[in-house]
Amino acid sequence: MSWTAVGRQLANPSGVGGRLVGAIMRVANKVPTEALVGALQIDSTHRVLDIGCGDGTALAAVPQAAYRSGLDRSATMLSIAGKALRRPLREGRASLVQGDMMNLPYEPNSFDRLLASNILYFCRDVPSFIDQCRRVARPGASLGIYVTAAESMAKWRFAGSATHRHFSRQDLESELRESGLGRADFEIDALILPGEIEGLLAVVRL
Rank of each mutant, 00 (worst) to 15 (best):
residue 52 G to N: 11
residue 149 A to P: 00
residue 118 N to Q: 14
residue 78 L to H: 07
residue 13 P to K: 15
residue 201 L to E: 06
residue 96 L to W: 12
residue 112 D to E: 09
residue 201 L to H: 07
residue 22 G to P: 10
residue 191 L to P: 08
residue 11 A to R: 10
residue 134 R to S: 04
residue 68 R to F: 05
residue 16 V to R: 10
residue 187 E to P: 04
residue 111 F to G: 01
residue 164 H to T: 14
residue 181 L to Y: 00
residue 120 L to H: 09
residue 122 F to W: 03
residue 19 R to C: 10
residue 63 P to E: 03
residue 194 P to W: 13
residue 174 S to M: 06
residue 170 Q to H: 09
residue 161 S to P: 02
residue 117 S to C: 13
residue 115 L to C: 03
residue 120 L to C: 04
residue 127 P to I: 09
residue 16 V to E: 13
residue 31 V to R: 13
residue 56 G to V: 07
residue 155 K to V: 02
residue 6 V to Y: 02
residue 107 E to N: 12
residue 59 L to I: 11
residue 41 Q to D: 02
residue 51 I to L: 10
residue 188 I to R: 00
residue 112 D to P: 02
residue 45 T to F: 14
residue 183 R to P: 06
residue 5 A to K: 09
residue 58 A to N: 02
residue 41 Q to Y: 08
residue 19 R to K: 15
residue 194 P to D: 01
residue 171 D to A: 09
residue 53 C to M: 09
residue 143 L to S: 02
residue 72 D to R: 03
residue 143 L to I: 04
residue 122 F to G: 14
residue 54 G to M: 08
residue 174 S to N: 01
residue 104 L to D: 02
residue 101 M to F: 10
residue 102 M to E: 07
residue 8 R to I: 04
residue 177 R to A: 03
residue 181 L to R: 11
residue 98 Q to S: 15
residue 1 M to E: 10
residue 81 A to F: 08
residue 87 R to W: 12
residue 118 N to V: 12
residue 150 A to S: 04
residue 95 S to N: 10
residue 192 I to H: 02
residue 110 S to R: 07
residue 180 G to C: 12
residue 125 D to I: 07
residue 206 L to N: 00
residue 182 G to P: 06
residue 180 G to E: 05
residue 137 A to Y: 00
residue 68 R to P: 01
residue 69 S to F: 13
residue 161 S to L: 05
residue 177 R to V: 06
residue 56 G to F: 15
residue 57 T to D: 06
residue 66 A to I: 05
residue 139 P to L: 11
residue 141 A to V: 10
residue 20 L to S: 04
residue 29 N to K: 04
residue 199 G to Y: 15
residue 184 A to P: 00
residue 109 N to D: 04
residue 100 D to K: 12
residue 106 Y to C: 01
residue 11 A to H: 06
residue 25 M to R: 01
residue 99 G to K: 15
residue 117 S to A: 06
residue 87 R to P: 03
residue 185 D to P: 00
residue 28 A to H: 11
residue 197 I to M: 07
residue 94 A to F: 14
residue 206 L to G: 00
residue 35 A to K: 03
residue 137 A to R: 08
residue 47 R to Q: 10
residue 199 G to R: 14
residue 138 R to Q: 11
residue 131 D to T: 08
residue 132 Q to H: 14
residue 179 S to A: 13
residue 129 F to R: 15
residue 175 E to D: 14
residue 123 C to N: 07
residue 91 E to T: 03
residue 146 Y to I: 07
residue 181 L to E: 00
residue 175 E to H: 14
residue 160 G to Q: 06
residue 112 D to T: 11
residue 164 H to N: 11
residue 33 T to N: 05
residue 116 A to W: 07
residue 206 L to H: 05
residue 98 Q to I: 05
residue 161 S to V: 15
residue 115 L to P: 12
residue 138 R to Y: 11
residue 52 G to R: 11
residue 3 W to A: 09
residue 70 G to L: 13
residue 201 L to N: 02
residue 70 G to D: 00
residue 69 S to R: 08
residue 16 V to P: 02
residue 14 S to E: 14
residue 139 P to I: 01
residue 68 R to W: 01
residue 51 I to C: 01
